[in-house]
Design a protein around this nucleic acid. Structure first.
Lengths: 333, 333
DNA sequence: CCTCTTTATGTAATCGATTACATTATAATC
DNA sequence: GATTATAATGTAATCGATTACATAAAGAGG
């Protein structure tokens, strides 16, 4: 079933069929009606490869996922992110292509773009100093980064306001009476880690409280429950603190366990604020006060910006607002 | 950068370049060396559309997601499922295409296959009586279904052993001393719902306990926390039971809340078993005994079976084993 | 050294769309 | 009614790969 079959069946040329499909005008209404009817009757769908080859645009946008299970699974909002993108994509007739990083070959992202499988890429796991950004620029492949790794300025990005997030989390802990706040931060080398620390420090400054860098801990690799537990356990041994800001809700639940094992009560004795607001956070006991990021919007904006770029429009990077979700882990009674 | 450029630069014809790329043999080793070197030097990647057009195969396999946020987000193992597929796909040089159901147009799944964007489909949200299966068969599009909706036999599937899951969950509750087990099941019309009920009934039979169908409740639509809470609340009013089997961990956490609000203790007074083993389940308090399904394997097998089908191999549907993860929600002390 | 395979390579048709350009029919202008 | 602009349609080149077929070169067998 090709455009030729349709043309023959509708008694017109392929050019006319193409004009109808692509709404290019200059087609007699009666002819158009006949063509539309024929297309429907024959269940014809234009071949994607042929169109893509001819127009050199695939209408696909790509993401590459790491095959590292731990990392991938622990990415706490993958589903919501995909969902945010997918609405935009479907409205604009784009589709999403997911490729997996092959073992020992770290340029799938380049490959899928270079071979024309996708028109642009969204990168959501970029660390400071990631050389992919330079490679993509060199190849002239349009891409949008989720987050703000260093070298901001040579790429477009969509990020949430992690500095503000760090600030409001810390400030809220001061507000409920904390004096010394342990900060269990994400891994070094992540932009979010830097920004959240900046917010944590600003919250100290604005209250005229001295900032003690011994109170800031960094997780080695995965921001999971286990590491939250271990870092808190460790801190309980040799530090004095009366509140915790944890950069990730999974880690925060680990911290909660460590606190309770120490015979303390989360909230009354040690208020805890997390980050991410994953579904879990509302369900743990006590429920977790946390910083919510509009992940859905991040996906949406990233897709929109990328598609605008593909259409040659001028685009602007975006930083989306975050806000505090107050729950029981910072409730004193 | 096309195959012609490579041919010119390596001083051979396009046919020879193609032979090298596709390892078709009959190429002088020295020539091959030169071509390979040239390809690398020029950073050439064969155009995907051209290849796809000529060979009429896209090496893409597709899934279509619903734009209904609630449903999509509550699908508890999307990430793990994708991850399972992606390993296989990447090894065999396939990629995943995700398309979103357009509002008011429920045949994106047909469209992406008919236009040659993908070679086959994986459907993971098929309910009993879903007419898509017939449409796909009619069009001769290869596809694999996750789960076992009715009309088994006219399609290939990968499922987990939900009957066994229902059985071991129920049997475990009997084992810890329950006499009357409330069963909060998934929505009617889902195959998993039927199979789990069958397991629940068999567990009664094998212990010679009478099965009371009043104790079986069905959620209307989404198996989320809210509905688990409401159904349990309702059941507490007019039913007597001393244990609960909940067909979904999110719902189970809702049930836990309802039980505790009634002044009962989950575990000691009312043991609860869930289903799915989402990350959450280990973290709630008390931690949730649940039935674990090998979702990763489901994704892996589905991808393998589909690709075998595409290669004309004989394939067989699969039912994967499930097992019980014992935690504190069924611990009496 | 001639014929016959086998190996290595090249030429050109092909996949199914889009689209520049050509052509014809129709309407508008004076 | 002749001239010109506009609308409707068609023809054929093109995108970049694969591959059937043709051909040339090299090796085998007598």
């Amino acid at each position: 079933m090709t455009i030729k079959d349709v043309a023959k069946a509708a008694n017109v040329s392929v050019a006319t069929v193409s004009r109808v499909i692509n709404r290019l005008g200059n087609v007699d209404p009666e002819t158009e009606r006949r063509v539309v009817e024929t297309i429907k009757r024959l269940n014809y769908f234009p071949n994607h490869s042929a169109k893509s080859l001819r127009t050199s645009s695939s209408n696909g946008i790509g993401i590459v996922i790491s095959h590292d299970l731990d990392y991938f699974i622990s990415f706490p909002y993958f589903v919501e992110f995909i969902h945010g993108m997918s609405g935009v994509l479907s409205d604009l007739d784009y589709h999403l292509v997911i490729s997996t990083e092959k073992k020992g070959n770290s340029n799938s992202y380049l490959e899928i773009a270079a071979k024309g499988l996708v028109d642009g890429l969204i990168l959501f796991d970029v660390m400071d100093g990631d050389e992919r950004i330079f490679a993509l620029r060199k190849f002239g492949i349009p891409f949008v980064v989720i987050g703000r790794p260093n070298n901001v300025g040579i790429y477009e990005y969509v990020d949430t306001d992690n500095e503000k997030g760090g600030f409001i989390a810390t400030d809220h802990l001061f507000e409920v009476g904390c004096k010394r706040i342990l900060f269990i931060n994400g891994p070094k080398g992540h932009a979010a880690t830097r920004y959240r620390l900046a917010g944590y420090i600003r919250a100290h400054k604005e209250r005229g409280i001295e900032y003690d860098e011994d109170l800031v801990k960094y997780v080695e690799k995965n921001s999971d429950r286990e590491n939250g537990y271990l870092l808190t356990k460790e801190a309980l041994k040799n530090l004095s603190f009366d509140g915790i800001f944890v950069s990730g809700d999974f880690m925060a639940t680990g911290a909660m366990v460590a606190i309770e094992e120490a015979g303390l009560k989360v909230g009354r004795d040690v208020p805890i604020v997390g980050f991410d607001d994953v579904p879990l956070s509302a369900m743990v006991n006590p429920s977790l006060t946390t910083v919510r990021q509009p992940i859905n919007e991040v996906g949406k904006n990233a897709a929109m910006i990328l598609i605008d770029m593909l259409n040659g429009k001028q685009v602007e990077s975006k930083v989306l607002d975050v806000f505090l979700v107050k729950r029981n882990s910072t409730f004193r009674e």
